[in-house]
Nucleic acid binder design. Sequence first.
DNA 1: TTTTATGATGAAAACGTTAACATTTGAAGT
DNA 2: ACTTCAAATGTTAACGTTTTCATCATAAAA
Lengths: 335, 335
Amino acid sequence: MITIKDIAKVAGVSHTTVSRALNGSPLIKPDTRERIAKIASDMNYMPNYSAKNLVTRKSNTIGLFFSSIEQGTSSSFLADALKGIRKQLGNMYMLTVSGIDDSSSMDYIDPRRYDGILVMSQSEWDNRFIYHVQSAGIPLVVLNRQLEDPSICNVASDDRVGGKAAADYAFECGHRLVAMIEGKAGFKSSSERKLGYMDSLMAHGLTPNPTYFVQGDYSIESGYTAMNQLLDLQERPTAVFCGNDDMAIGAMNACFDRGVQIPNEISLIGFDDMTFASYTNPPLTTIHKSVSEIAEEGTRLLLERLQYPQTLPVQRLLGSTLVQRRSVSKLAEHR
Amino acid sequence: MITIKDIAKVAGVSHTTVSRALNGSPLIKPDTRERIAKIASDMNYMPNYSAKNLVTRKSNTIGLFFSSIEQGTSSSFLADALKGIRKQLGNMYMLTVSGIDDSSSMDYIDPRRYDGILVMSQSEWDNRFIYHVQSAGIPLVVLNRQLEDPSICNVASDDRVGGKAAADYAFECGHRLVAMIEGKAGFKSSSERKLGYMDSLMAHGLTPNPTYFVQGDYSIESGYTAMNQLLDLQERPTAVFCGNDDMAIGAMNACFDRGVQIPNEISLIGFDDMTFASYTNPPLTTIHKSVSEIAEEGTRLLLERLQYPQTLPVQRLLGSTLVQRRSVSKLAEHR
DNA sequence: TTTTATGATGAAAACGTTAACATTTGAAGT
DNA sequence: ACTTCAAATGTTAACGTTTTCATCATAAAA
């Protein structure tokens, strides 16, 4: 492996000059810079990053950490996030991916290994990790889950507004009996979406019906069983707001299996607008949330903080909007 | 940041001793080892990996490279792969993720940055990259795409066998007019699956009908338009083998839109068995292929090669088997 | 006792960079 | 021609490890 000293020898200069030339120092005469660059490329030089990092105390690495890489994370989620991040990152930084629950991940958090960290968070369980990172002094952006703490840089989608939009739409379509299949207990997104639903309920002067709330866990299966529960009710809801698209798909299946027509007999609204939402039957009306946008914006923010460490942490909520498809019926008798 | 020298000072030994103690050298007396370990943990010592890597000429990093992170890669794919890999990797190695097309990714391939590389490959376009890695002398395993070259370690699913299984099943169910929606042109998997179909055709003594082959690109949309093309035919096929599940879903949608019943009027077979396959309507009969298993096995192999560099490269094909669901009808009149 | 081996430790060099400080060069100002 | 200053380059010391080679005990063998 060839080093800057080898280049120095060939170029007849000191290795320091080579280092400077290759790093674009203004101290080097343009023509020697070019001469050295030429030699370096001819010799197929590649810098040794370990050595570089050792002395600069940088790592050229951004770490992406997931709530739980094993479970709970829907797959399009991870992929979208990755795409958004890589897009922003270019090839200035390496990107590592780990689950927060990777055995004792804490022990491996070290400012010398990560220039910055992105946390794709889903539940409050991640807080321990998040604060560990913060107290280690590593620049940090938390993605996807809304945080309270103003000292932490954060970008997420506005789940509450989205939840409200979903419920609003149901009510505007004339539905009065609208149930909700809730997301995973303990996940902030679950409670926010529910809160949004509640906001809408209140705004429309309606009172919540306890039997119309059933707990899910964001999985397709949970949507299926939850929907069956709803269908067993004496007074069936005419619309169901599902905490995410996966559960909506499970719910759809439950309906198909029991021969109840969507949207004629029952309407369905999802949340997330994943790729498949347009391809269910009928296409799913849902709340659009762009994970890749969140990831992209978060990465942009992180990069900014790396460049200007003084930048103040910001909390950003990306809008979530309703996309109308065909899983919701308009009720005629709505006054 | 505290270093081994700090520990040495406290322990009253040389930093060499500390290094040895912390790395489990047999030269160190058990009790001094423990004493040092205690001090290190008390002082909250974390090794500086840059320094370590500099002298050991290792990187503690495995690189995962994707065919095209931007497009073509279905999302469950990426997520599954990641899960399989992380599972095997534990926390011995960092894992970085990049797209092969990341601007000039070649320039960043360096044995000092990657102890080993996994390539999640989909098309022959990746070969350039693969051979670059190999000639750089970095231990390498190519995943997911079957390779010809016996000098390269490779694990993939047996697409051809899978394709044959799919077609066999259609024929056994009495179908004679079975079309195929092909995967992305240039992808090895596309041609292998088609070859498998051909094998079956031949085994059943049938002759291929050129109009029954329509090109897709593995996307949902392409499945949709391809299916429409098929439905426009004078003599409609009674069954369609789709190159992957995404296209099968697109095809399903085309059918729904035109009111053609699945599986009564037309049968559908997919490939991959992604999560959603069980939740389409009707549930999709498809060929099961486990990306996470492939990833896991590939990682195992890579790790083995890192430990025993002499290990010979192996080519492994993981079986792909049919999973029967409800998108294929049994034709009575099949004599 | 004196040697000899061996088990445990230490000193110093090396890994490939960057950075602080020193030196040279050359041109401009007197 | 002599100083002065700035621009360009060189010297040397870090950075935090591991590793080679030497040293020093200590216990066994003579």
